[in-house]
């Protein structure tokens, strides 16, 4: 299917070899981020690894004998060969992953999929709307934006989580806010009385967020219902449909278009996505059980 968005080139070597064979990475650190999320910090066993990725892409992460799951890359594209994957403990594989220690080895296949249109957003405002762990696949885009901050106009992060304790990458966000010109607005579903910030869904931040809708790229990732309402609010503000990008999630067994599991209407989330221009999936966004 013809894709309207930036598609990373696939290294010929990666495509030619057996694409189902993982490369080995050892764990440098397992970092607890919040109550139920953690980050694996990984380095390749192969010191000649030529792994490179673009913000928004994902890897298939294999845990010995347990299974393999797709997880977006959440590290800085500029700090390779170190890779970071932030995930939530929700299933058999991620629970086993949480038990891993420094020095344990995992399998990595990737990077797969499409990427955020960072290069296209030069000279424009960028609004990033994230829900919960949806911030993880957006963090590499933030690294890119911060690394070349002067190339972009306003950069706004609108971030919704369940509680203040669920805010990911808190220190980093505060560091960026202090160092660069980055507007961050956080809202939570519920909080104790000492929370002075916003309470409510993330879409409530959009109407008053400081960006120029006629010249904005919007990057959105979170639960599907959150993305659907975010799109409605962004369009209401006047952000052009073709400048709204979303990252979708589906079951995946291969990551390369063979297993069929990740289909979302006519697109494969693994190879046409996970990052989609809104017009690629607008017709099915909001339809149930697609």
């Amino acid at each position: 299917m013809a894709s309207a968005i930036e598609q990373p080139e696939i290294a010929a070597a990666a495509a030619a070899a057996d694409p189902m064979l993982p490369a080995l990475y050892s764990i440098q650190r397992v970092r607890q981020e919040t109550d139920d999320t953690f980050t694996l910090e990984l380095v390749p066993e192969d010191s000649h690894s030529s792994f490179g990725f673009r913000p928004g892409q994902f890897n298939m992460v294999y845990i010995f004998g347990v299974g393999e799951v797709p997880i977006s890359i959440s590290s800085d594209p500029g700090s390779l060969p170190m890779l970071k994957h932030t995930t939530r403990e929700v299933g058999t594989v991620t629970r086993a992953m949480r038990q891993l220690k420094r020095g344990d080895v995992v399998g990595i296949r990737g990077p797969y999929g499409s990427c955020w249109p960072v290069a296209k957003a030069v000279e424009r405002d960028v609004v990033i709307v994230a829900g919960g762990i949806g911030l993880a696949p957006l963090r590499p885009a933030l690294y890119r934006l911060m690394a070349e901050r002067e190339k972009f106009r306003k950069i706004v992060l609108l971030y919704g989580t369940r509680t203040p304790e669920d805010i990911l990458y808190r220190q980093e966000l505060e560091h960026w806010r202090g160092k660069f010109d980055l507007e961050i607005q956080v809202t939570v579903d519920r909080a104790a009385s000492n929370w002075r910030g916003n309470v409510g869904v993330v879409t409530t931040l959009i109407p008053r967020a400081p960006f120029d809708p006629s010249n904005t790229f919007a990057l959105v990732c979170g639960p599907e219902v959150m993305m659907r309402f975010t799109v409605m609010e962004l369009e209401k503000r006047g952000v052009a449909t073709e400048r709204i990008y979303l990252s979708a999630e589906r079951n995946m067994k291969c990551g390369i278009g063979f297993c069929g599991h990740c289909q979302l209407g006519a697109v494969f989330v693994c190879k046409d996505g996970p990052v989609f221009a809104l017009n690629q999936i607008a017709a099915i966004l909001g339809k149930s059980e697609i």
Binding site: G65, K253, C254, F258, C259, G260, H261
Partner: peptide
Amino acid sequence: FCTTVEDSTDITGNHA
């Protein structure tokens, strides 16, 4: 053409 994958280990836990 759809497929799934299955992972397993033997009884020693050292062979997958």
